[in-house]
C-alpha cells in the first residue's frame, strides 16, 4: 500500500509544525524521516495514523483517506508512537491479546499471531511479566510487537530503536529491512547511521518543510556536488607538483593539507575522474604516489548543511 501525503499543514497555535508537505512512499520502500527536534516528523506521523487531524491537506494510505475512511485506514497501519506508551499494568501477553482483539483478528488465529510476534521480537522469556517490570529495551520490543501483530501493510515507527542496546538495534534493523521488502515502512530517527543502514530513501525535514528527498547517494551528490581527493605525492619539488596538479582536467581547487608531508587536497568536477589525472601526472614526472584517498561527504555534513539555523539551502 502506498502512502500519499498531499499538502499537509498543521499548526500548533502560531507555530507551524508542518508546512505544505507532500510526498509519496511506495510499497516495498523503507523511508527514513530525518530532522532536528521539532522539525515536524512526529506531527506528520501522527497525521498519517489519524491521531492528529491536519489543518489542511490529505493523506491516503492505499485507497483510504484519513478524512473519509479512518477506521479502514487504521486497520492497515501498525504504529509505534514516540515514547512508546503502553498499558504498564498489563502482562505482555494479555496486552498483545488485547491489541489483537481490537484489530479483529479471528479467534482461531490469535494464538498463532501472538506466538509469531513474540518470537519475532524475542519476548518469549518475558511474555508473562507485567509491562511495568520490563526494561526499556523490552518495552520497546513490546511496542514493536503490538505494531506488527496484525501483519499491517504499512508500518509507522517513531524512533523505533531508542533505548535498545547495540545488539538489539541490529536485530530491529534487520527486522525492519525484512518487513520493508513487502510492506511500506516509515521510520523516524535522530541517528543518521541508522537511517543510512535501514532506509532505501531519506526524507529530511526542517521547520516543517522537506529540504531533501532521495537515496543516501542522491543526497550526497545533491548536497556537495563535489569530488574531493586527498593525495600524498613524494619524490618531486613541491611547487612543480602543485602546478602539475592544477593542470589536471577538471580540477578546480588544489591546496596543501600538510606541506612537510607532501599532502594535497584536490577539489574538482564530479563528472571527471580526478584520480586518473593524478596518477598520470605522477607517472609522467616520475613521482611516487603514496596515498590517494577519495573523501566522501558524510551524511552528518549533509544533515548539518540542510538543517542549520542559517538560511536553508535547497
Amino acid at each position: 500500500m502506498d502512502i500519499v501525503v498531499e499538502n499537509l499543514v498543521k499548526s500548533y497555535g502560531l507555530q507551524r509544525a508542518v508546512d505544505h508537505i507532500s510526498f509519496r512512499v511506495r510499497t516495498g520502500e523503507v523511508l527514513g524521516f530525518l530532522g532536528p527536534n521539532g522539525a515536524g516528523k512526529t506531527t506528520t506521523m501522527k497525521a498519517i495514523t489519524t491521531f492528529l487531524v491536519p489543518d489542511s491537506g490529505n493523506i491516503h494510505v492505499g485507497n483510504y483517506s484519513i478524512h473519509e475512511d479512518p477506521e479502514k485506514l487504521k486497520k492497515n497501519i501498525g504504529y509505534l508512537p514516540e515514547n512508546n506508551p503502553l498499558y504498564e499494568d498489563m502482562p505482555v501477553i494479555d496486552y498483545l491479546k488485547f491489541v489483537a482483539n481490537l484489530h479483529g483478528i479471528p479467534k482461531q488465529e490469535i494464538n498463532g499471531s501472538l506466538l509469531n510476534v513474540i518470537d519475532l521480537c524475542g519476548l518469549e522469556a518475558e511474555k508473562h511479566k507485567k509491562i511495568s517490570e520490563l526494561s526499556k529495551g523490552y518495552k520497546q520490543r513490546v511496542g514493536l510487537a503490538q505494531a506488527l501483530i496484525h501483519k499491517p501493510e504499512v508500518l509507522i515507527l517513531d524512533e523505533p530503536t531508542t533505548g535498545l542496546d547495540p545488539n538489539q538495534i541490529m536485530e530491529i534493523r534487520e527486522l525492519i529491512k525484512k518487513i520493508g521488502k513487502e510492506k511500506t515502512v516509515i521510520l523516524s530517527s535522530h541517528i543518521l547511521a541508522e537511517v543510512e543502514a535501514t532506509c532505501d530513501r531519506i526524507l529530511i525535514i526542517n521547520k516543517g518543510k522537506i529540504v531533501a528527498d532521495g537515496t543516501t547517494q542522491d543526497l550526497r551528490n545533491q548536497a556537495s556536488g563535489k569530488n574531493i581527493l586527498k593525495a600524498r605525492i613524494l619524490g618531486g619539488n613541491l611547487d612543480s607538483i602543485f602546478a602539475a596538479l592544477q593542470k589536471i582536467d577538471g580540477v578546480k581547487v588544489v591546496d596543501f593539507i600538510n606541506k612537510d608531508q607532501n599532502r594535497f587536497y584536490l577539489d574538482g568536477d564530479q563528472s571527471k575522474n580526478l584520480a586518473e589525472g593524478v596518477f598520470n601526472a605522477c607517472v609522467k614526472n616520475g613521482w611516487i604516489l603514496t596515498e590517494l584517498i577519495p573523501v566522501e561527504t558524510k551524511l552528518e555534513d549533509i544533515f548539518k548543511e540542510l538543517t542549520m539555523e542559517s538560511p536553508v539551502k535547497n
Partner: peptide, 13 residues
C-alpha cells in the same frame, strides 16, 4: 501515559 494515542490509532472510534 500517552496510551490514548495507542488506543485511538487502533481500529476503534
Amino acid at each position: 501515559m500517552g496510551t490514548i494515542e495507542l488506543l485511538l490509532t487502533k481500529p476503534v472510534s
